[in-house]
Amino acid sequence: MRRYTRTLGRLWSASLFAEMEYRTNFVVAALNGIGTLAGTIFTLSLFYRDGFLIGGWVWTQALFIIGCFTFLDGFQAAFLGPNFQRFSEYIREGTLDFVLLKPIDSQFFVSFRNLSLWGIPNLVLGPLLILYAGFRNDPPVPLVDYLVGALALGLGTVMLYAMGFFLVTFTIWFVKLWNITIALQSIIQAGRYPISSYPPAYRFVLTYLVPVLFLTTVPAEAFSGRSETVWILGAAGLATGLLLACRLFYLFALRSYTSASS
């Protein structure tokens, strides 16, 4: 376990040092995070003119969902994006061989090797917005709801990772497929609004085909103290199932990996 945390520390500081070469990028990344959040809140406010409630949610409750989305978006940009892109390079160039030889779990290594600074602003801004919405909420959110919400958001993060990794595993067979994660990323955009704000056909897709419901709606409900235990248990079950599925699928796919030379 300690070996894993130490390896992570080294890998991430190496990633950040590499990005230090382009120092203006730090400023651009911060502006990017702040600008995107401002734009998202502006767009949300357009729904609230003239007394309309999006999906029946009041303003602070909707801010929770934006906070959850921003956090997941940051996680996606910091970890999933750069590592999954790298993964398709390993397959194309056959360098996955070297990863497999390392004395560390290969799925762990390929999933978390890189840390991109583009995601970091959102990883910070998301929780800050959740805290702000918690103070503004009427009544202010008690500590226990923060804990349940954080748990639900953590489960959402696990699900997002598992779904992404499941899809990227397909590149072992169809080398040039990492774009599939971009497609997933685009559907996740639907998580900016509560599931109840969509027409029925959308709700079906966002619940059963791509469980966006569990990524942002369920955690946001937990933060605003409206969640039921059954939803959290469901999220825990689904997260475990998806994680297990992506692990088994990866191990199965590795059997078909033939490296570049053979």
Binding site: F47, I187, A190, S197, Y198, P199, Y202
Partner: peptide
């Protein structure tokens, strides 16, 4: 995707 909430 945005079409959804705006239709509602």
């Amino acid at each position: 995707i945005m079409m959804g909430p705006w239709i509602v």
